[in-house]
């Protein structure tokens, strides 16, 4: 009993990675904020916090899928901005919403194909799509503006029984991700492929009849689609298209995933860890705002956290 508790907290002998510690950190920050400020521990602020954290949680879950197979998707931020820009094109929602997901899936498909069929390193492939998508976004909407369909705004701004809609949407997305990772054959394959790549045996999963190529392509498609969900969500909250809304989001998602104990080399990680990691990020942002820290310093601090968290992970590979 103690041993397994120790294992969970230290992340040893587990496929889920170290997620107990970030949970502790999240609780400590919440405790500190509760003591320090009067506004923090109100139902309103807590729901607000969840609503603010939601885009990051959604996008980070997508990033998690890619990280589990030992990849990295740097186009997440651009896909989010792109989604808000497309939604603000002024067409009916029935056209725009399917279009957004179709386009996101296409971006993911390009990433996946470049990586698997053309042997491009994931970072290089997603970095180039990041630039291409950002360029297209800036053509569609050079500065923020435009009108998002009313249905998208209504879907994220109302509340039911005192609980804001974003909480429900978050629950739906988390359940979907849970089903994908832990309740489907695909999730099992993800861990198998990632575990093989992390231990230097790229062909391990293939030898057991798991098609790594198809699954890797699908992982990038899933990641882009999650980013699109986050984009739709953000578009509803800011009520317009904004080419810069997703700026640095890819790094925030990587930080959240790594904070949640997921190994960036693949194969080890968990959904709850990623959700906790995203919540820690949101709590930190909330706390730093309450403490009146300059947004520039906040960015620097986020970078420092990313560096520290990833620096503490050990891996065999050197370089990229």
């Amino acid at each position: 009993m103690y041993r397994s508790l120790f294992n969970i907290l230290s992340g040893r002998n587990t496929r889920q990675g170290l997620w107990g510690l970030p949970l502790l950190v999240a609780l400590l920050i919440s405790l500190w904020l509760t003591v320090q400020t009067r506004e923090f521990a109100t139902t309103e602020n807590l729901f607000n916090l969840v609503a603010q954290a939601m885009p990051l949680i959604i996008a980070a879950l997508g990033q998690l899928v890619v990280v589990l197979i030992g990849g990295l998707d740097l186009s997440v931020g651009s896909v989010i901005s792109f989604t808000t820009a497309v939604l603000a094109l002024g067409q009916p929602a029935i056209l725009l919403i399917p279009a957004v997901f179709l386009l996101a899936a296409m971006i993911g498909l390009i990433n996946g194909l470049a990586i698997t069929r053309f042997n491009v390193h994931p970072i290089i492939a997603t970095l180039s799509t990041q630039y291409i998508v950002l360029g297209i976004t800036r053509i569609l909407r050079p500065v923020s503006g435009g009108a998002v369909p009313g249905i998208v705004i209504d879907a994220v701004s109302g509340s039911l029984l005192g609980i804001p809609y974003p909480v429900f949407w978050g629950a739906v997305v988390i359940l979907a991700a849970w089903k994908l990772l832990y309740g489907s054959r695909y999730g099992l394959h993800l861990f198998a492929i990632g575990g093989g790549i992390a231990s230097g045996a790229e062909s391990a999963a293939r030898n057991f009849g798991v098609s790594d190529r198809r699954n890797i392509i699908l992982a990038y498609v899933v990641c882009s689609c999650f980013a699109a969900v986050a984009g739709v969500f953000l578009a509803g909250r800011i009520v317009s298209g904004d080419p810069n809304v997703g700026l640095l989001f890819e790094l925030d998602t990587v930080t959240a995933v790594a904070l949640g104990g997921t190994q960036l080399s693949g194969g080890i990680g968990s959904l709850h860890g990623t959700v906790i990691g995203s919540l820690v990020m949101a709590l930190l942002a909330n706390g730093m705002n309450l403490a009146n820290i300059s947004p520039f310093v906040q960015t620097a601090i986020k970078g420092g956290i990313l560096l520290a968290v990833v620096g503490l992970q050990s891996r065999k590979k050197m370089g990229l």
């Binding site: 640095l248 790094l251 620097a300 970078g303 990313l306 560096l307 990833v310 050197m318 990229l320």
Partner: peptide
């Protein structure tokens, strides 16, 4: 960080860049 701590080079150098940019802007 990259050679000794074996951290992913993309993460390290991007994070360093973000920290420096944030500091200069501050």
């Amino acid at each position: 960080m990259i050679g000794n701590r074996r951290v992913s080079a993309v993460i390290v150098t991007l994070a360093v860049s973000i920290i420096l940019v944030g500091l200069v802007q501050f």
